[in-house]
Write a protein that binds this DNA or RNA. Structure first.
Lengths: 122, 122
DNA sequence: TTGACGCATGCCGATATGGGCATATGATTC
DNA sequence: GAATCATATGCCCATATCGGCATGCGTCAA
């Protein structure tokens, strides 16, 4: 049996190549929000986020790899810009649950009460 | 200097207590989708996902802790039900980028140029 | 050319995961 | 009670992060 056939435990889907994971990080979400105002250089973003420049660069790299941001060289600087297209699938996926959170809340409350009763544990 | 004052590296936001992280896991998203059809016991979910029961239980725990599912005892079984309210914030957050992905893409370049200009007025 | 910026990377440390397994806990039926 | 389902947990392993730091690299200015 070849070595590569061994079952190797998987920790977590790579954050790279997965938009859901990319935006699971608060600071990365914040970066996207900041970029709505327009292109920005790394240092500026790092400053606004209150983190070190390497940290910002790393987050930007993840965002770039999933296609949520684009970068462009501008002299000494590198300007990052938002490319929100990748967020659309997520918007749509969550949208697929809209009718559930819109369900009548009288009924939901009743349901919750129901749960409270039927649950003795916790 | 007290022990607790040391800088302790933080690995990643706990998946617990954070809906964004909770749905960053493909199988957890799949569970939510399955639950749209109605309550289901753990074993059934595990089977449909093609994973072992402990695995399903763990994912369900995470989902429960962020409030995306509710559970209810039903005899020997424990039925899990969807509570999609927690997905709404995500839907809305991504919705905040709608105007960006709606920009015509022929015009994306032009738009970027545009940003370059409007950035000056900040 | 030599600095000085602006960024990207590599490495380290501490921690969080996810899956596989074995086992504890609960509830139901005999 | 005992045997048996249905779940939840604990543990271990291998890996993925995140942040801090030092450093490499490309670009611009003196």
């Amino acid at each position: 049996m070849p070595i590569w056939a061994y079952d190797s435990p998987v920790a977590r889907a790579a954050t790279t190549s997965d938009v859901f994971n990319a935006i699971a990080e608060p600071q990365r979400r914040e970066i996207l929000v900041l970029l709505r105002a327009g292109e920005r250089p790394v240092t500026e973003l790092a400053q606004e986020l209150g983190i070190a420049q390497p940290g910002a660069s790393k987050h930007l790299r993840v965002l770039r790899e999933v296609g949520l941001v684009r970068d462009r060289k501008a002299g000494k600087q590198r300007l990052y810009a938002l490319d929100a297209r990748g967020l659309r699938p997520i918007h749509e996926w969550t949208g697929g649950f809209e009718r559930f959170w819109n369900e009548s809340f009288d009924r939901l409350d009743a349901y919750v009460q129901d749960l409270k009763q039927s649950r003795q544990e916790e």
